[in-house]
């Protein structure tokens, strides 16, 4: 009897171990997109990025983003140069990262097609400054893929990015950020 129990426990352990080692619960993309805009009195400054890296662990709800600042594309070459040179200082701070968690991860069923609201909390590092960020987003499960989308706002002043007096009419301190990623299963 006791031998059987022991055998049972060992089997269980093995099954759990195998499950945790072989678990296919991480999703990723390297071609996510981020758009941002800053609405000034005179003009709206917009940029987009199409090589955003995002990894999501459906088991823990951990979600992380990384983006190379130089990959943001603007309509005007001059804006792009000023963005890299004067505002985010891309040579000094080439990358921006977000590391956070889906707070209500348990409410999302990654195995079932459907649309779920996700509350995300985490830390955004930009221009060498790290700040807490909270955002609401939507995760749509469809055919084994995840569509993650979110919109949120940050303040440039929070990240030590200053706007010179001469261009305060051209942009605002508030940056609207929109994220769209299609995540696929990460094969390990």
């Amino acid at each position: 009897m006791s031998f059987l129990i022991k055998k049972g426990i060992i089997s269980c352990c093995f099954v759990l171990m195998m499950a945790s080692l072989m678990a296919q619960d991480k999703y990723f993309t390297k071609s996510g997109s981020i758009q941002f805009s800053s609405k000034g009195v005179i003009e709206t400054i917009e940029a987009s990025h199409r090589s955003v890296t995002c990894v999501l662990d459906s088991k823990t709800g951990d979600i992380q983003f990384a983006v190379l600042m130089k990959g943001f594309e603007f309509r005007k070459a001059m804006m792009q140069e000023h963005f890299n040179e004067n505002y985010v200082e891309s040579d000094k701070y080439p990358k921006s990262e977000f590391r956070g968690q889906i707070v209500n991860n348990s409410e999302i069923d990654y195995t079932k097609d459907g649309s779920y609201t996700a509350h995300i909390k985490g830390k955004l590092t930009l221009h060498g400054q790290t700040k807490d960020v909270e955002a609401d987003g939507k995760i749509t499960v469809k055919g084994g893929k995840l569509l993650a989308a979110s919109k949120f706002k940050i303040l440039m002043s929070d990240y030590d990015i200053d706007i010179p007096g001469s261009v305060t009419q051209n942009m605002s301190d508030t940056i609207n950020i929109s994220v769209n990623c299609t995540l696929e299963l990460l094969q390990q």
Partner: peptide, 12 residues
């Protein structure tokens, strides 16, 4: 865990 280290940086 560092999820980002699981995917290689795209060599752009």
């Amino acid at each position: 865990q560092d999820l980002l280290s699981m995917v290689k940086d795209s060599a752009k």
